[in-house]
Each structure stands twice: as C-alpha cells, then as structure tokens.
Simulated scan of single mutants.
Amino acid sequence: MPIITSTYKPPFWAKRSFVSTVFSGLARTVNGVEQTRERIILPDSDFLDLDWSYANSTSNKVVILLHGLEGHAQRPYITGTAKLFNDNGIDACAVNFRGCSGEPNKLYRSYHSGATEDLEAVVNYILKHKDYSDIYIKGISLGANMALKYVGERNHVPKELKAVIAVSTPCHLKGSCDALLSLKNKHYAIRFLDHLKKKLKPKLEQFPNDISIEDYNSIKSLIDFDHVYTSRAHGFKDAYDYYDKASCLQFLPNVKIPSLIINALNDSFLSASCYPVKEAKENPNVYLEMPKYGGHVGFIDKGNVYYNERRALEFVSELN
C-alpha cells in the first residue's frame, strides 16, 4: 500500500492515448474562471506571475497549480482545476513559470522540471502575505515532477502544506525524454521543440556571452535543447546530469505528506520507470493511481470536469 485501484472509465471515443491527449490539449475549453494577476519578485531579481481565482466566500484554503512544459496558467488543465476548487470553497493560485506568462523573464535562466527554488518562493510568499491554514499543490507533467521533488527533497515542509497531487508525472526524466523522442511521439516532440526554440531565440541577443548562434543551430531535438540550454543555464553539467538530479523518483521515499500520483498506463510520454510502484508500496504517504486510460493529461470525464480534477478534490477533502 498504497496502490489505488482506479475507477476511471473514459467515454469510448477517448480510450486511445492520442485522442484523449490531443483533444484535452487543443480542443477543451473551460469558462467561468476569473483570474487576477499578481507579480512576485524572486530572490535573484527575476519575477513570477501568479494568477489567482477565488471561492465565492472567504476561504482559508488554497491550491497552488503548476503547469507543464511550455504551458501557462490559462491552460484548461489549470483552469479546470481552479474552477472546481473555487466552486468547492478553495482559492487557487496558478503559477506561470519564468517566461511563461506572456512576458520574457529577465535572466538567462528560465524554468525546468526540478526548479523547486521557484516553488519554494511561491509557498513562502503565500505564507508571509496571505492567511491560509491549508495549502495544497497540484502539478501537471513537468509541474508534477517539481511538486513531488519539492516535498521529497527536504526534511521539513511548512505545517500549512497538507497534500500534493501529481498528474501525468515524468518521475524519471531520462525515461520520459526517451519516450518523447520515440517515433510514436515525434509530432509532440517537434511541437515542444518549436515552442522552446522560439522562446530561446531572443536570448541570443540579450545574452551573447551565454549562447552563440552556433549553439542555437545545433539544437535538433529535445535532448539537444537540454544539453545546450537547460543544463548550462541552470547549473548542470549536461542534459543527463539535469535528468538525474531533477527527477522526483529518488525523492519519493522521503515524502512526508499525503501525495497522490495519477499516471495513466497508456501515457505515451512516460516510460516504465515513471510508475513508482515500489516507492508507493514502501512509503505510506505516496499514493499511486494508474488508470488504464487517460493518455497525457487526458482524463476526459462527464460535465467537462476531468477525472484527475475530481480525484484531486476528493483527495484533499478526505484529509479533513
């Protein structure tokens, strides 16, 4: 324990991983979420933009929402959770990682799967400036890895932090990278790389001492991007060093608060090493749910409330 038997049953048309993943990423819309933006300054002088949405009545609970690779706080997988939690009396703080809020960040560095220093800054800001007794974190994909690494890499977390929910989690980053680079995921990999390179290009002029046009032109794949940019910009030796040190898998044995991982068995972005069965069986705080279907963040369900969103609310509600 605790391996959780999933009850997720998608519509018949959404059983294929490709269909559920693409529909959820490109076709889903969520209405009725009013967000208010707040900018916080980080210790290194860079900034993060936080998009807040609130419950109808004053709440002493908040969920911090972390998006995935090249996402932002207006993606439906973020606003869907925000809406459900707001409707159930819980405020939502949707984080835009550095450079993801529509405005380039100030520094050469940006964000990555293990940048828990930025999550720590958000948690500390909320603790200092807001009045919440209960804080939850829900991360999606890259954000899920970050959330679990944050709670697992430290011996103590704030007493107000009650739970983590991690969805479509690349627990082992090298395995997930290998999966993304496989032929079946070629279209996804090309799309991600295109977004990443477009965002990196302006930094060629801003930071000529950090990256050259030759470096930029050498980036032909996601692993090249991590070799040339992600690793060097964030203090790692190379992409493999980054994958090794930033993966949350190694930190799961030290997780000390209830943490739910929902990884679909047909998620083509995840390798076998991204399903931490052993870690869940050995740590009573790590709950692993492996639905047969769901693709990558594609847990389509009734009423435009996704299964992972409903499970997240159930998980935190059961703590009370």
Rank of each mutant, 00 (worst) to 15 (best):
E205K: 13
A94N: 09
A312V: 03
L26R: 13
I41R: 14
Y240F: 15
N283T: 12
G295Q: 06
P11M: 14
L313V: 00
E289G: 08
Y287M: 05
Q35M: 14
S6F: 10
H296C: 11
N285E: 13
T58R: 13
S212G: 07
E34N: 14
A189Y: 10
S218D: 02
K174A: 14
L270Q: 03
C100R: 09
S221L: 01
E70I: 08
Q250C: 05
G152A: 09
S141F: 02
L84W: 10
A94V: 00
K302F: 12
H156D: 14
G298R: 00
C93F: 09
A121H: 06
R75W: 02
P11N: 13
N308M: 13
L193Q: 10
S268Y: 12
K106T: 13
L148T: 09
T36E: 13
Q250E: 12
L204F: 08
D118T: 02
V286T: 03
K106Q: 15
T29D: 10
L249M: 11
Q250R: 12
I190F: 12
I90A: 05
G25D: 08
P2D: 04
K199S: 12
L119T: 05
D44W: 00
I90W: 04
E282C: 07
D44V: 04
A233N: 03
L48E: 04
P158F: 07
K256P: 00
Y242G: 02
T81M: 12
I300K: 05
D44I: 02
P258E: 08
N283K: 11
E34K: 14
R311W: 09
I165Q: 03
N209P: 00
R37L: 11
T169S: 03
L288T: 05
R109A: 15
H296R: 05
T21H: 03
V63F: 01
I90V: 15
G68E: 02
I262A: 08
D301E: 11
Y54E: 10
L204V: 07
G143E: 06
K15Q: 13
M290S: 04
R109T: 14
Y77T: 00
A147R: 08
S110P: 06
R310L: 15
V123D: 01
S133R: 12
L48T: 09
S57V: 11
F47D: 07
S168G: 15
K197D: 02
H187A: 12
S176F: 03
H129Y: 13
W52Q: 01
G102F: 11
K149D: 10
I213D: 06
F192N: 03
L42W: 04
R28N: 07
K203A: 04
R16F: 10
E318A: 15
K184V: 14
T81R: 10
D215W: 07
G298S: 01
L69Q: 07
S17D: 15
R16Y: 09
A73L: 00
K197P: 01
L319S: 02
Y150I: 08
H129R: 02
I140T: 14
D267G: 00
K61N: 08
R109C: 14
E282N: 13
G102T: 09
I257R: 06
V22F: 14
N31S: 15
D267H: 03
G152Y: 09
K162V: 04
K15V: 11
V255R: 05
V316R: 01
Y229F: 15
A82F: 09
D244F: 11
K106E: 15
I4W: 00
M290V: 04
L193S: 04
I257A: 05
Y188C: 09
A14D: 07
L142Q: 13
N254S: 12
A163H: 08
